[in-house]
Amino acid sequence: MSPLWMAVIIAAVGCYLLKLAGVSLPESILNHPKVQRVAQLLPIAMLSALVAVELFDGGRAYSADWRTLAGVAAGVIALLLRRGFLVVFLIAISVTALLRLIT
């Protein structure tokens, strides 16, 4: 089995076990306010880090493609205009694709 397949299986089963823990663990552990606060902030810090890394990581160096940045910036404008996920997604990829086509 390739390392990538092993990673897929471990991560997928692990995510399932987290859900199973949620419906099996005694409530007192999960209801602890500090535990809840960390859990609520985790996706915020990590999603934000993922955005930054997706945009500027060039493999141990910084690099960015201005067309990708422009596409994501267009997506941010759509978010500011309170558009939903699908509109944001389509605007980001079409602006990037268009800029790549004409440059």
Binding site: L47, V51, E54, G75, F85, F89, T96
Partner: peptide, 29 residues
């Protein structure tokens, strides 16, 4: 290549209403 960061931003956006959340997002990035 713009899809993944745009998707992450769209997921993140509604979580950023509180100031603390914005600081955490900035700090994480």
């Amino acid at each position: 290549d713009a899809a993944a960061p745009a998707v992450f931003l769209a997921l993140l956006w509604p979580m950023l209403r509180r100031p603390q959340a914005r600081w955490v997002a900035l700090g994480g990035a």
